[in-house]
């Protein structure tokens, strides 16, 4: 099957840095797949997502999303994608509903359709009752859920999730993961980065473990564990491949 997202020999070098942040990265994501990008701090996950989201211009390499070039056809690509950034990328002084309506409008939604999408996204993440409270007054878990809702308000075909469950309670995390699985069942393709290996194991059809800008190993979580029989969990495999030294 033709991958929905195809990355070939991707290279990115930040000005003033000695080594590349992304160093010849190649992978593909099939339609309807949840693909996990795992790696320690500084592995190049966020840089890769920034390039794929058209935010950053790669130094070299090829990217195709739905057959489109994000560099030359950025606007068309942006219609296909959604982003759930690592930060709570919402206006804290606006309510969750106001945030969703704003981002929905900018995605071209309007009228009844916009209201329906905002309502259904708020319902999906369990924020209907708190929809009119300011995001600044939300708990960490509520803000993370609102962050997810803003990323899917326009029903993207490909959703980029950059550590969407950092620093939240177990209930909120569980809800977010269930939501993602539901969205995936409805056909949404996802690229997921996380430091929580059990999340990746639960959610992803395939994962790539990255280190120093390169893919160290790639495959389905169960398949990878079969290949590395000495590792009982994805976390053990991750530590074996990337080392136990701290990455600050």
């Amino acid at each position: 099957m033709e991958p929905f997202l195809r990355v070939e020999s991707l290279l990115h070098r930040y000005p003033g840095m000695s080594g590349p942040a992304v160093d010849g990265l190649s992978f593909g994501i099939a339609p309807g797949e949840i693909y996990g990008l795992l790696g320690p701090n500084g592995a190049g996950k966020s840089t890769t997502i920034s390039i794929l989201c058209t935010l950053l211009q790669a130094t070299a390499g090829t990217v195709r999303i739905g057959g489109l070039d994000p560099l030359r056809q950025a606007t068309q690509v942006r219609r296909l994608i959604g982003l759930v950034p690592q930060e709570i990328a919402l206006y804290p002084q606006l309510s969750a509903r106001e945030n969703l309506l704003y981002f929905g409008r900018l995605h071209g939604l309007h009228g009844r359709r916009l209201l329906q999408r905002a309502e259904s996204c708020l319902a999906l993440v369990g924020l209907l009752e708190a929809a009119d409270r300011r995001v600044a007054d939300y708990s960490g878990g509520m803000a993370r859920r609102a962050n997810l809702a803003a990323g899917i308000v326009h029903e993207p075909q490909l959703l980029f999730l950059d550590e969407p469950t950092v620093g939240i309670d177990a209930q909120s995390r569980r809800m977010i993961l269930e939501n993602l699985l539901q969205l995936n069942r409805e056909g949404m393709t996802m690229l997921y980065t996380t430091h929580y290996m059990e999340e990746a194991q639960l959610l992803c059809n395939r994962v790539a473990i990255m280190d120093r800008g390169r893919v160290v190993v790639e495959g389905a979580p169960t398949g990878l564990l079969e290949q590395h029989a000495d590792c009982g969990t994805l976390e053990e495999l991750f530590l074996q491949l990337t080392g136990r030294q701290l990455r600050d």
């Binding site: 920034s50 989201c53 058209t54 935010l55 606007t75 068309q76 942006r78 219609r79 994608i81 959604g82 982003l83 950034p85 690592q86 930060e87 709570i88 990328a89 919402l90 206006y91 804290p92 981002f103 900018l106 995605h107 071209g108 803003a150 990323g151």
Partner: peptide
């Protein structure tokens, strides 16, 4: 910029001019 909303805005299928 700091809260990441800019990142989200830059991923939108609209030119930066109207924003």
């Amino acid at each position: 910029r700091q809260q990441g909303t800019l990142q989200r805005l830059l991923c939108l299928p609209v030119s930066g001019w109207p924003l």
